[in-house]
Design a protein around this nucleic acid. Structure first.
Length: 391
DNA sequence: TCTGGGGTCCTAGGACCC
DNA sequence: TCTGGGGTCCTAGGACCC
């Protein structure tokens, strides 16, 4: 195995800790950050709230039931994003190989950092101290010879923890590691693996590759490699955005087409604004609908030319809604853009005049669907600026 | 009274091309 | 009458992550 030294940094109860940092009156109190509506879930729970059995993804109404004095704070994403940038910048003073995985988590390759910054333990302690002094927040750190183990290690001693897995401890660690702790093993995969008698990652080692592939597909091969301690996935600093989307759970389910279109309009505007901010244009537009029975449905169309403004996104979304025509009340509606290209990418000539899209008639279909919508509802039926009713 | 929002990756089938 | 096979793109759904 290549001798990497990987560090994983994970902020402790990030959103909740930021709220307690900014408002001292919230410190020491059970608090969750979560949606304002009655249908929201917990995005982050303070350690005080966790003592009541409250955890992230729990519906707010359940959390409230568990703790009557619970403080519920709406999320301030911009504030979290700003602090996240501060934290990532701190990491970059230790190694140029920093890979943010989410707003509050990052991998760092510290393989070659010994000369400059000392032992892995010294580096981890310095990272924690810097984040505490410059951002005012604690984090937990894991250090290991591979990414997946560093990630698991950072979670082993929360909050404000530090766990180091030395190369000679790797096999012992794997043998005891509960299978559901392996990143990528969720509830479905866990159930499948338990049914095969696999309770720890070590149990995967003697399992025939053919069986793992049959049961788990490509992921089975990865599990097999991990069970042998093989994980050479590199820390990749430049991870480019693949999609931009927004979605809204309505305050109550609706069958009202015009109401859905009003959401689609404001969402198209938001997605377009974000694309312009990030200097992208997109070829594929996706409509997402969750019906009252919690079933998710999507429809997408790839356009002949990349778009960046709200109007074509909205037009496509409305056409896709026509196509999907959900049976029954709608709970959630969303719009996404993928197939992203840099804003500056030149548009290939000829796409309209004899390119594949025109020849196979896909564009015509979209066009006709749009015409149908415009005919039936009229573009003016959902006028500019008619935003969804405020909740 | 009732289960978010932002993403990534994988799979599988069909169209299409050579 | 025989009836390929590999590669790529597109689409819909689903698992999983924080």
């Amino acid at each position: 195995m290549a001798s990497f030294i990987i560090l994983h940094m994970d902020m402790d109860a990030f959103f909740a800790s930021v709220e307690q940092l900014d408002d001292p009156s919230l410190r020491g109190r059970p608090l969750v950050v979560g949606g304002r509506s009655n249908r929201g879930v917990v995005a982050a729970a303070s350690y005080e709230a966790r003592r009541f059995g409250i955890h992230s993804a729990m519906p707010i109404f359940q959390a409230r039931r568990k703790c009557s004095s619970l403080v519920i704070v709406p999320p301030r994403r911009k504030r979290y994003a700003a602090l996240s940038r501060t934290i990532m910048t701190i990491l970059e003073t230790f190694s140029p190989l920093v890979e943010p995985v989410s707003i509050d988590e990052a991998f760092m390759d510290i393989t070659g950092c010994g000369r400059l910054h000392g032992s892995p333990r010294q580096i981890a302690l310095a990272v924690k101290a810097q984040i505490l002094s410059q951002a005012g927040l604690t984090c937990s750190v894991g250090v290991a010879p591979a990414k997946f183990m560093a990630k698991i290690a950072s979670d082993m001693d929360k909050p404000d923890g530090l766990t180091i897995i030395e190369p000679d401890q790797v096999m012992g660690f794997i043998d005891k590691l509960p299978i559901q702790k392996v990143p990528g093993v969720g509830s479905r995969a866990e159930a499948q693996l338990l049914a095969m008698g696999i309770r720890t990652l070590g149990h995967v080692r003697p399992c025939p590759e053919s069986l793992l592939i049959r049961k788990m597909g490509k992921f089975g091969l990865r599990l097999k490699a991990l069970a042998h301690g093989r994980d050479d996935s590199p820390v990749t600093p430049l991870c480019r955005t693949k999609s931009i989307s927004t979605e809204t759970t309505l305050s109550r389910d609706t069958r009202d087409h015009n109401r859905l279109c009003a959401y689609l309009l404001s969402q198209s505007q938001a997605v377009a604004a974000e694309m312009r901010r990030k200097k992208f244009k997109a070829r594929t537009i996706t409509l997402k609908i969750k019906t009252a029975d919690f079933k998710l449905h999507s429809r997408s169309r790839t356009l002949p030319l990349p778009v960046q403004s709200a109007d074509p996104i909205y037009q496509a979304a409305v056409a896709l809604l026509q196509d999907l025509s959900p049976a029954g009340p709608v709970r959630l509606v969303g719009v996404g853009a993928s197939g992203l290209l840099a804003e500056s990418t030149p548009v290939q000539a000829g796409l309209f005049s004899g390119g594949q899209q025109t020849r196979n008639g896909k564009w015509d279909k979209v066009d006709k669907a749009m015409d149908a919508v415009n005919l039936r509802f009229g573009v003016r039926a959902v006028a500019r600026g008619k935003l969804p009713p405020s909740e």
